[in-house]
């Protein structure tokens, strides 16, 4: 064996070893959801939650379909609101001049890296004062405030890359500045809008913490909140079959979605990294 093939084999061995837990995780998920471990046979008993409300360690849970509906509505709403707010903001930061732009930029940057989660106690108190606890509006507002700085930052990068000539040309042809933004710039940064939409969707789809904290009615939960209730109910999970079946139902759409959009993850300038 030549030294270079030896080296390759070594690298492959190590990489396979490192990746083994993840492969095990994926295999376990499918096995646990679709196999009856006492008989060792394939069964879809665990997927009974599709038809009827299930009982889990003595607690009757609401039927899953309204919760799926909540999840989709909530995620799409978050995507819409985040795109509608972050695109104009990023445009202003990238292409307009205004007093205090430098300070605002610095603040945006500070907020992007500052963990908003540390302020959750006071945020909760403010929501109580505004009577937004146990409403979707409250969850939505807190969630988007936390993620917007990151989205604005990514969007700003896309606006920075648009050549000025395009905007000039549009304005020479008689567009106002706003019309140029709407008709020329927004179509030009569509890939960026797609990227932040994907990020927002994934973020909203996985959001469980704010639901656990701010939503008290079980029938208002989303799938993530629902699952987090199940797995933190007791220290120890009683019925892995049921949990993994729900988990699989919840995760598979995201994985498929991810396979189709994964190019975005690799291409977006994630950190605004200056030398990367």
């Amino acid at each position: 064996m030549s030294p270079s093939t030896l080296k390759k084999t070594l690298v492959h061995t190590y990489m396979t070893l490192f990746t083994l837990p993840i492969i095990a995780m994926i295999v376990w998920y499918f096995l646990s959801a679709t196999m009856n471990f006492t008989t060792g046979q394939f069964s879809l008993d665990n997927f009974a939650f599709f038809q009827e409300p299930v009982e889990y360690s003595g607690v009757k849970l609401p039927l899953i379909w309204p919760i799926v509906f909540n999840t989709i509505i909530y995620s799409l709403l978050i995507v819409a609101v985040e795109v509608c707010i972050s695109v104009p903001t990023a445009y202003a930061f990238s292409r307009l001049d205004f007093k205090g732009k430098r300070a605002a930029m610095k603040f945006l940057f500070l907020m992007r890296s500052f963990p908003g989660i540390t302020l959750i106690i006071a945020t909760f108190f403010i929501l109580v004062q505004m009577q937004l606890v146990n409403t979707y509006l409250g969850v939505l507002l807190v969630a988007i405030t936390g993620s917007l700085p990151g989205r604005v930052y990514i969007m700003k990068g896309f606006f920075d890359d648009v050549p000025w000539d395009i905007e000039w040309a549009a304005m020479v042809d008689g567009c106002t500045r706003f019309r140029a933004f709407k008709k020329v710039l927004v179509p030009y940064v569509l890939p960026g809008i797609g990227a932040i939409a994907v990020f927002s969707f994934l973020g909203a789809y996985g959001e469980w913490f704010l639901f656990k904290l701010l939503i008290f009615n079980d029938d208002m939960l989303t799938l993530a909140g629902y699952l987090s209730k199940l797995i933190t109910k007791e220290n120890q999970i009683v019925n892995y079959g049921l949990i993994t079946a729900i988990g699989l139902f919840y995760t598979l759409p995201i994985v498929v979605f991810y396979i189709f959009t994964q190019k975005i993850f690799m291409s977006v300038n994630l950190g605004g990294a200056k030398q990367v």
């Binding site: 104009p88 903001t89 307009l96 907020m111 807190v142 405030t145 500045r177």
Partner: peptide
């Protein structure tokens, strides 16, 4: 005023759910 209109929704959100909680944490 035009650029400020673009950042107004964002600024409002940041004020109510970031700056205000930051102050409130200190006060609390």
């Amino acid at each position: 005023i035009y650029p400020y209109l673009f950042i107004a929704p964002f600024a409002l959100l940041v004020f109510v759910f970031f700056i205000l909680p930051a102050i409130a944490t200190i006060v609390m």
